[in-house]
Simulated scan of single mutants.
Amino acid sequence: MNIPAIQSALEALVIPATQRTLGSEKAVQNISQNSDGLHIDLQFGFPVAHIGSDIANLVQEAVFAQIGETDIHLSIHTDIATHKVQPGIQTIKGVKNIIAVASGKGGVGKSTTTANLATAMAKMGARVGVLDADLYGPSQPTMLGVAERKPDQKSQKLIPVTADNGIQVMSIGFLVDTDQAVVWRGPMLSQALQQLLFQSEWDDLDYLFIDLPPGTGDIQLTLSQKIPVTGSVVVTTPQDIALIDARKAIDMFHKVNIPIFGVLENMSVHICSNCGHSEAIFGSDGGKNLAAKLNVPLLGQLPLSLPVREAMDNGTATALFEQQPQIEAVYTQAAFQLALAVSDKGKDFSSRFPKIVVE
């Protein structure tokens, strides 16, 4: 059996929903012929559970084209690395990559986008967490269906609440009365954010999404100076007013040296649940044009949808994906583009080196 020819054929395969190949991603780890058939091991630096069956079909076709029909034992797994963050900031135990989700303006669906991106990433096979950093208006516990739960404590650390879909969630909403206003000045907000992040016992997360409050104030400054951020996503609507503030959020990330993985255009089109008519209520392609102007990727154009609103109010994001495959496809594609962008960043090797203390 010509193993090198099989390897070459496999490395030429294009990964579904991308322009990458198995060869460019160094995904082919092992090919061996055993008595029970051909064994192939593939490894990816991003989650691929949503395209696993497509990859398997491509591998089968490529192998059959080389040697004819044979028994194939295919193993597909991921090894998501810890990627670089701001210089001089240490990564957090139990968290490989932190993704900040921001908007310059409130009301553009940033928290909804965070919850659904996290849900999509979890369904793709990643270990995912959400930190609700909108301390004045925490909404992630409701959106992820864990509002009635409380975090446990162990060894003076908080144990994040785990949603039914496996997402680990931490929010100030677990610790204060939901009907009580949080009347705090900037330093208290910054301290609370750091405590929620650093004093939580995160369990081996590939991606931690931080749902930021609107604006470019104290929370965002703390994020850039104290928290190891792999990169950010900016959420906007196509509306001109929202785009003005989205530019400010992008400018802020540029100034504090946090890379922007892309722009997500939310509420890009409304589809009538009765007749199916689509209408661009907030304008057309505003986020797309902003991404092109600023030379950052457009990760997706997300719909203004009644089922999405209902799912967020009811904390049923997983059921939303099961019942609305078109909506699931949009969020999954956006999450996949985000995972690919993270995988392209340089890896962080700081944990392999001892700390040097000068006395």
Rank of each mutant, 00 (worst) to 15 (best):
T236C: 13
T236G: 10
T236A: 14
T236K: 13
T236Q: 11
T237V: 13
T237Y: 12
T237A: 11
T237S: 13
T237P: 03
T237R: 07
P238V: 02
P238E: 03
P238T: 01
P238W: 07
P238F: 07
P238K: 09
P238D: 03
P238Q: 04
Q239P: 00
Q239D: 03
Q239I: 01
Q239R: 02
D240L: 01
D240S: 09
D240G: 05
D240I: 01
I241T: 10
I241K: 02
I241W: 06
A242Q: 10
A242L: 04
A242F: 12
A242P: 14
L243C: 01
L243I: 14
L243H: 09
L243A: 11
L243W: 07
L243T: 10
L243G: 09
L243S: 08
I244T: 15
I244F: 08
I244Q: 14
I244A: 13
I244H: 08
D245C: 00
D245K: 05
D245L: 05
D245H: 05
D245W: 00
A246D: 12
A246H: 07
A246V: 09
A246M: 06
A246S: 14
R247N: 15
R247V: 09
R247F: 07
R247T: 14
R247L: 09
R247W: 02
R247P: 02
K248M: 06
K248I: 03
K248C: 09
A249D: 05
A249M: 05
A249C: 11
I250L: 13
I250D: 05
I250E: 08
I250F: 10
D251V: 09
D251S: 14
D251G: 10
M252A: 13
M252H: 02
M252D: 08
M252F: 15
M252V: 03
M252L: 08
F253M: 11
F253S: 10
F253I: 02
H254L: 03
H254M: 00
H254I: 05
H254S: 03
H254N: 14
H254Q: 07
K255S: 15
K255H: 14
K255V: 11
K255G: 12
K255L: 10
K255P: 06
K255A: 12
K255F: 09
K255Q: 15
K255N: 15
V256F: 04
V256Q: 07
V256R: 13
V256C: 05
V256P: 05
N257L: 04
N257C: 01
N257Q: 15
N257A: 15
N257V: 04
I258P: 06
I258M: 08
I258T: 15
I258F: 08
I258N: 14
P259E: 01
P259T: 12
P259R: 02
P259G: 11
P259I: 00
P259M: 02
P259D: 02
P259V: 02
I260R: 02
I260M: 04
I260D: 06
I260N: 05
I260L: 14
F261C: 14
F261K: 12
F261R: 13
F261T: 12
G262E: 06
G262W: 03
G262D: 07
G262F: 01
V263S: 06
V263N: 00
V263E: 06
V263L: 07
V263I: 14
L264W: 03
L264M: 03
L264Y: 02
L264I: 15
L264E: 07
L264R: 00
E265V: 03
E265Y: 06
E265S: 04
E265H: 01
E265W: 01
E265K: 01
